[in-house]
Write a protein that binds this DNA or RNA. Structure first.
Lengths: 206, 206
DNA sequence: GATCGATGTATCGGGACGATACATCCGGTC
DNA sequence: GACCGGATGTATCGTCCCGATACATCGATC
């Protein structure tokens, strides 16, 4: 998942670790960010797999031969995606199976790179996610109905709030899906035939 | 956090791992449950610290000496809380600092055991949690306002949904807090003086 | 001109998780 | 009455993530 996000970000342009971390935070939803303890090992894995390459474009030119020893070696390391990396990213982006939406984080990453995703794939991922969340909601509703007598007030409140939250997510996904379908329909109509009756307004775009 | 939850559950009665896991799932909000890979190491840590004790009340009586060797050793292991464990739990339950509410999971556990918690401590925890979530909301609103031009539609939607979610949590907490305050006021009124004017309805309770 | 905070790369230990192995018991089924 | 599958049950392993930390440089503020 992290690897996926990194490949996606490097798609645009090379970056160094610090930048990557900041961008990653906004991709992951604005709240929880990623730690260096996750980031650097992930970069190493990607590099070992040949999906990204690192270069050191700031050769620090100065300083005599007695460099501050081992760990010292500032000068920012820039990571760039390779051809293989681009292939791999294209594969990942076009996945429509459960691995694309069962995990919340993974789904978020897919959403973040939807502009690289074909319209039909987008729709399948959104629908898959909705199915997953609906199942969660139903399970929760069920367990709540079965156990509500035995729970104290606070636990009950917690469950109710959780249920409400999941329910809202379903509705949110439904809105997204409907708007995707509208787009697809508009697209089809535009390709099929220019509307009769009402004149199409000055359509300059494209 | 896991340790906290285990101590809380064993407060009621001894349990074995499998039961513990199921109860834990409902404590943690109905959705995400805990894996054995987390549970058993946690039980070992608690046992090493002397906070719980394990007994094997099913001596399997049968089977000749040639037991199926090493790993074999069925007969469920029951875990019970010790006196030290009860002390530790009482300490944990009365914490009102950031450690009680900064982490979502930890806050959930506190909420799950609110019936063991004094009214003033409950209020402080709820208010602390609200402060934390409000800060999250404000940060998110800020970053959304600053970056909304550069984000594509889907990322924007994701952020908006996240923001809505956090905002709802604040409102939910406010409801809980208000109802706690009402309870406290009613309590105080009952202790202080019977109301004049309107006659108190037949108050049989307590 | 010195300190402070942002930027920057990197590692370490602790802990959580999914997967898996192993073992028992209970119900139904032919 | 033999068998089988699924729920119950204990436990470990490898992989990965995270918070904390170390080290290093730069710009700005006072």
């Amino acid at each position: 998942m992290l690897e996926f996000a990194i490949l996606g970000l490097l798609q645009q342009s090379p970056m160094h670790g610090y930048e990557l971390r900041k961008e990653l935070a906004s991709v992951l939803g604005g709240l929880r960010s990623i730690s260096y303890g996750s980031l650097y090992p992930a970069l190493k894995r990607l590099q070992a797999a040949g999906l990204i390459a690192s270069e050191d474009p700031v050769p620090r030119a100065l300083l005599p031969a007695d460099a501050p020893a081992l760990t010292g070696r500032r000068g920012k390391v820039v990571y760039a995606i390779t051809a293989e990396g681009k292939e791999r990213f294209a594969d990942l982006v076009s996945q429509t199976g459960p691995e694309a939406y069962d995990d919340e984080g993974r789904f978020g990453v897919h959403l973040a790179f939807f502009r690289h995703t074909a319209a039909d794939v987008r729709l399948r991922i959104l629908e898959g996610r909705r199915r997953t969340v609906e199942r969660q909601r139903d399970r929760l509703m069920d367990s709540l109905r079965r156990t509500q007598e035995k729970l104290d007030r606070y636990t009950l409140e917690l469950q109710r709030h959780g249920l409400d939250s999941v329910d809202r997510e379903v509705r949110w996904l439904t809105e997204l899906i409907d708007s995707e379908r509208d787009d697809a329909r508009a697209e089809a109509a535009r390709a099929d035939e220019p509307p009769t009756g009402t004149a199409p307004p000055n359509d300059v775009t494209t």
